[in-house]
């Protein structure tokens, strides 16, 4: 899992607005990169664009030798995990089923193996197993984001994209979660791209970038 990420000439334009243009970025395996956000600066769309979730995106996103924008749904889902800032869970399913969903669809694991994987992921995020039987509407915002994160992590993606993880989280929880992500990057060589404006997260990042005038610019923190 030591593939680097190479973004080339990424452009996203809606009929009424150009969000970003000619975005180029290379990220080494194992890195944590943070896009420092401002309101409506297009950072969330940039993350979704990198994940191949937007139809109107132009450019190329290479993870190793695969272009994520042309990759099949199954292969992309096993290599890329996405964490939503809000909602993002399937209301048809409880927490356990939500987290196990990628395993159900994209692996050959049996139910016992899936349960072990889900429990291990919950443990790594210090999420109480009592949450597993709850429905998405019973969770608060922080719990929803953590379950989103657990679902993204459970399949061990090479590229993890996280949109504004920190809202409402106490500092110690932020520190613990970021430490886990950094450790995961070092151990597995996976890449994490996050949007954030939180000082604690910006401080821990290997690189901090910002969308400024439709372009991605490196900033010092």
């Amino acid at each position: 899992m030591n593939d680097s990420l190479k973004i080339q000439s990424l452009r996203l334009e809606y009929p009424d607005k150009l969000l970003f243009d000619d975005i180029n970025l290379t990220v080494a395996a194992g890195s944590l990169v943070v896009f420092e956000t401002n309101v409506l600066d297009g950072a969330t769309s940039l993350l979704k664009g990198i994940a191949g979730m937007l139809n109107n995106i132009q450019g190329q996103v290479w993870l190793g030798d695969s272009n994520l924008l042309t990759l099949g749904a199954h292969e992309r889902a096993t290599r890329v995990g996405f964490v939503y800032e809000e909602q993002g869970l399937i209301s048809l399913y409880n927490v356990f089923q939500n987290i196990a969903l990628p395993l159900e669809f994209h692996t050959a694991l049996n139910p016992n193996q899936m349960e072990s994987r889900v429990l291990a992921t919950l443990d790594s995020l210090s999420i109480a197993p009592s949450l597993l039987e709850q429905q998405p509407h019973e969770l608060n915002d922080v719990q929803t984001r953590l379950v989103n994160l657990a679902r993204a992590l459970v399949i061990d993606p090479q590229l993890l994209l996280i949109d504004e993880l920190e809202g409402g989280m106490p500092d110690d929880m932020i520190d613990r979660t970021i430490a886990m992500l950094i450790d995961r990057g070092k151990t597995l060589g996976s890449i994490t791209l996050m949007t954030s404006s939180h000082e604690r997260i910006l401080r821990e990042a290997d690189r901090v970038l910002k969308i400024d005038d439709k372009q991605l610019r490196e900033t010092e923190f």
Partner: peptide
Amino acid sequence: GYLRLRREFQVLNGLGIS
């Protein structure tokens, strides 16, 4: 309709699930 409002179809597509 509510699944559409909550963008859950988009989430499923992101998970590679039709």
